[in-house]
Design a protein around this nucleic acid. Structure first.
Length: 789
DNA sequence: ATGATGATATTTTTT
DNA sequence: ATATCATCAT
């Protein structure tokens, strides 16, 4: 008898039911913190050890690289085998792997390149401007991008697009041009990766059958996030014979706005035979109180499959609700609570501040700086999305494919080499007329010019008729001036030269050679700004990345092509350095899948959360509520909710009402925290004592339903706070006299600077300060917290 | 080719 | 308020 205790001992009954289920289709509804990844990895092991399935015959699909890596790691730990060559990956990663194998059937050049959404947008803009000559104020590139991506997610090619009115006809036409452009340049966007594989399988049933046989078992993570093409793709692969083990949580579906279909979870039960359903409802993360709040909230949604989280743990502390005067006070409150946490010898990184939109992060950031709390913000640019890195990648892509126009344009522009708009316009025109790539056009035009001048000498005495011929109007318009032609030639020769010399080099040497010989690295190094120095460092980092890059089993690819594909598919980790002890700031969306001992869920205000832009339909609101549910279920022990009564955003201050989600949480689970003594006059003041805010029992809801928000006590407070604001305004009138020209000042972000000028009066008064390496800035005194230095 | 000025937008984000 | 982007002037 096989000893399976290592696979099943640590599982609860439901987890065990899922893991040990007989081969067949299975849907696991895995609540937040219920051990989803554990079930997936144990199932994998179970299939191997009990069903005797080869790991090569199991396909495990995730959405993010992070999830795929985590799965690999856990499998490695569990099985002590190296899962490197296993079929564990993201939808896009796997699609890429297949397209590299079946590039011929997919009608792609062997060296096809993957473009990211940034490249995609550039191409759309280019087409609008150069080919279709459409006004990008009317035909907004971002919207077109969404339109095309959505079409691809639906598996729709241009011929099948609607064309019943002006709008849809134009969209269809743009889509067509875009696709032609990609095809001609050997480019594949993210949506295309999936669609192509779908089509290959559709048109080559023998290939599909091959993979159906090859992968009798398919595991899918985060199933609630699948869009239509992904679903169709799984459907193909599973076919009549495959077994699907899908894990998801309809309550955590928060990507509907980018095409994810929660309905796929339910649809799965209909479309596939004999789907066994297992619910994982035991939660190992949060206190019972937090779970009660989460359950109560999500119950308000109608379209659910139903699930109720529970825990064996204790009820823990109540949720804490803080009603702040404004966003500044909210931020200060959060900061102080974190300080309290730290004073108990706990870690900064235990604390996460979650918000609906990125705009909220600024004030939090400023406050944390003031309070000297280390923090880290998730989001923002990732490594391979940085401008300088994309510049470098353009050169690398050009080495792979000279006819890649997008890369050609990018590479020729940085560093500046005297080839400007005029020359480029001529190149584009020539390329358009002759249906060639920019490279070919450049080659011909620079060559022609060279020959022209060589011949000129010998031809001086020859007949005028020959010259006349050379001066045909079309040609004249495209002729480059000698200087431009020469520079262009130099550029082409440089690329050709690089191509030759780097042919046999190892990857990192190749990258290094490109950075050096194109002058890209030098260009940034020679600039003075801090930004540019950073860019130069990033370029160096690119060399290290190339050094560390190992080609996995993507057989038959040159290291360079593999590297470039990887760069597009995995644009760099946004993960924090686990050794760095910092408060974690992120949007609710990026918090999915994470957990923290202390969570601050802030900005719980109508219009902000739920956001105005997604409050129109019931579906929108339900997704917002799920987002809130995701936020609450991130918390392990302490959950703080907060909202402000007024919030300044986009330059104006608005009064706000508390979020409707607060009403969905039973009052008995919440403890109110209010202001006891007035807040300090100046926000630059030292951190107030932690005793300023005290806990106070909340009103019974029977007694005063909703009164909490508008109680007379509140308005008293408000009056008090209004006085405060007036005092606040006076506070800066006093020191302002000292902000004279040449005065040394200190800014919390930019450091020490010198006042160069000042203007305006009252609230509008501003000073012009030279912060040295941070540059010269105009600062409004009533906003910037300037101090004398 | 570079900097200044003015218009514009500003939910959420992975691949 | 602010950041980004396009257009324009130098």
């Amino acid at each position: 008898m096989l000893d399976l205790s290592h696979l099943t001992d640590s599982l609860n009954p439901q987890q065990r039911e899922a893991v040990t289920a007989p081969a067949g289709n299975l849907l696991v509804l895995a609540g937040a913190g219920s051990g989803k990844t554990k079930v997936l990895t144990h199932r994998f092991a179970w299939l191997m050890e009990v069903e005797k399935i080869s790991p090569q015959a199991i396909l495990a699909v995730t959405f993010t690289n992070k999830a795929a890596n985590e799965m690999r790691e856990r499998l490695n730990k569990l099985l002590h085998l190296n899962p490197r060559s296993w079929w564990v990956g993201t939808f896009h990663g796997l699609a890429h792997r297949w397209l590299r194998t079946h590039w011929q059937e997919a009608n792609l050049p062997q060296a096809f390149q993957i473009i990211d959404s940034d490249d995609q947008l550039r191409i759309i803009k280019k087409i609008l401007k150069e080919i279709l000559k459409l006004d990008d104020k009317v035909w907004i590139p971002n919207q077109i991008q969404g339109y095309i991506s959505r079409a691809k997610d639906q598996g729709v090619r241009p011929p099948y697009m609607d064309s019943f009115d002006e709008y849809s006809r134009t969209m269809k036409m743009i889509y067509e041009h875009y696709q032609n452009y990609c095809d001609q340049n050997g480019l594949v966007d993210f949506g295309e990766l999936l669609l192509r594989v779908y089509e290959v399988w559709h048109y080559y049933p023998n290939i599909l059958t091959h993979y159906q046989k090859r992968f009798p078992h398919i595991l899918v993570d985060e199933f609630q996030d699948t869009n239509n093409i992904q679903y169709a793709w799984l459907q193909q692969l599973i076919g009549e014979t495959g077994c699907a083990f899908v894990v998801g949580d309809d309550d955590q579906s928060i990507y509907g706005w980018r095409g994810a279909k929660v309905g796929n979870v339910r649809r799965f039960q209909k479309d596939f035979k004999t789907v066994q359903l297992v619910r994982l409802e035991q939660n190992y993360r949060s206190s019972a109180t937090i779970l009660a709040a989460a359950n109560a909230l999500i119950e308000k949604n109608n379209s659910r499959m139903g699930k109720k989280l529970w825990t064996e743990g204790d009820s823990g502390e109540p949720l804490r609700l803080f009603n702040a005067m404004d966003e500044k006070e909210e931020a200060r409150f959060i900061g102080e609570r974190i300080q309290q946490w730290i004073s108990q010898n706990k870690k900064h990184k235990d604390c996460a501040i979650l918000y609906r939109s990125n705009a909220q992060s600024r004030i939090l950031e400023e406050t944390l700086i003031q309070m000297r709390l280390p923090y880290r913000i998730y989001g923002g640019l990732r490594f391979f999305e940085r401008q300088e890195i994309k510049d470098a990648l353009a050169y690398l892509r050009l080495l792979v494919n000279k006819d890649d126009d997008t890369s050609f344009e990018r590479a020729i522009a940085v560093p500046p080499r005297g080839i400007g708009d005029v020359t480029m316009e001529k190149l584009r025109e020539h390329a358009r007329q002759n249906q060639t790539s920019l490279w070919q056009a450049a080659d011909i035009l620079s060559q022609e010019k060279k020959l022209f001048f060589q011949n000129l000498k010998s031809q001086l005495n020859q007949s005028l008729s020959l010259l006349d011929e050379l001066e045909k109007p079309e040609q004249v318009s495209q002729e480059l001036n000698p200087r431009a032609a020469n520079l262009l030639r130099q550029f082409l020769d440089m690329i050709l030269q690089l191509r030759k010399t780097t042919e046999k080099m190892p990857l990192h040497q190749l990258v290094s050679a490109v950075l050096l010989q194109t002058g890209l690295l030098k260009f940034y190094q020679e600039k003075k700004g801090e930004k540019e120095q950073m860019r130069a460092e990033n370029l160096q980092e690119l060399i290290s990345a190339a050094k560390g890059f190992e080609i996995d089993s993507t057989e038959g690819l040159t290291p360079l092509i593999a590297f470039l594909s990887n760069a597009a598919l995995e644009s760099g980790e946004r993960q924090s350095d686990p050794n760095q002890d910092a408060v974690q700031l992120m949007t609710l969306h990026s918090a999915k899948g994470l957990e923290f001992p202390v969570v601050f869920l802030c900005g719980l205000e109508e219009g902000l959360f739920p956001h105005v832009m997604s409050s129109q339909t019931v579906e929108d609101l339900e997704e917002e509520r799920r987002l809130c549910y995701v936020g609450i279920t991130r918390a392990m022990k302490h959950l703080y909710l907060s909202y402000a009564e007024s919030r300044s955003m986009r330059g104006s201050t608005n009064f706000t009402r508390p979020s409707r989600f607060l009403e969905d949480i039973p009052k008995s689970l919440i403890e109110d925290i209010r202001l006891k003594t007035p807040s300090p006059i100046k926000s630059t003041a030292f951190a107030p004592s932690p005793h300023r805010w005290t806990n106070k029992p909340r009103f019974n809801d029977e007694e005063k339903p909703r009164q909490f928000y508008h109680s007379s006590e509140r308005s008293e407070d408000n009056k008090h706070q209004q006085n405060q604001q007036i005092i606040n305004k006076q506070a800066w009138v006093d020191p302002k006299a000292s902000f004279k020209i040449n005065q040394k000042v200190q800014h919390e972000k930019f450091g020490i600077g010198i006042v160069l000028a000042n203007e305006g009066k009252g609230e509008a008064e501003r000073v012009y300060v030279d912060f040295g390496k941070h540059g010269k800035k105009w600062l409004v005194l009533s906003y910037a917290k300037l101090q004398l230095a």
